[in-house]
């Protein structure tokens, strides 16, 4: 199973939001241990509504885990939550935040 959010990213140029190169991020272990070891850095626990998500992070609406990428996420990107097996497309809310829309 490949839960690496990066591998699920759609092309940056295709999202139409911006042509700027995506920011890169170095992911550190956060202690999340609910998926096999090699994928753990791609997830972290959500700290509740006051938790500020980075431009490389999106909240899984099914199991409330934060999914992280080494690259900035943009609308149209596809991500997968290994903690609950859910596939999403990244969208942008009216307030400008990144959200996940589930694909059944």
């Amino acid at each position: 199973m490949n839960g690496d959010a990066d591998s699920k990213l759609a092309g940056a140029a295709a999202d139409g939001e911006t042509s700027k190169p995506r920011q890169r991020f170095v992911l550190e272990e956060t202690g999340f241990d609910e998926v096999p070891e090699k994928y753990r850095k791609y997830y972290r626990k959500w700290k509740g509504p006051s938790d500020d998500l980075g431009p490389n992070e999106v909240l899984c609406p099914v199991c409330k885990v934060v999914i992280r990428s080494t690259r900035e996420l943009r609308p149209g990107d596809r991500v997968y939550c290994m903690a609950c097996f859910t596939r999403f497309t990244v969208t942008r809310s009216e307030l400008g935040a990144l959200e996940a829309t589930i694909e059944y």
Partner: peptide
Amino acid sequence: RRHVGFGEN
């Protein structure tokens, strides 16, 4: 988390 994920999906 796995259980609710299975249910919804």
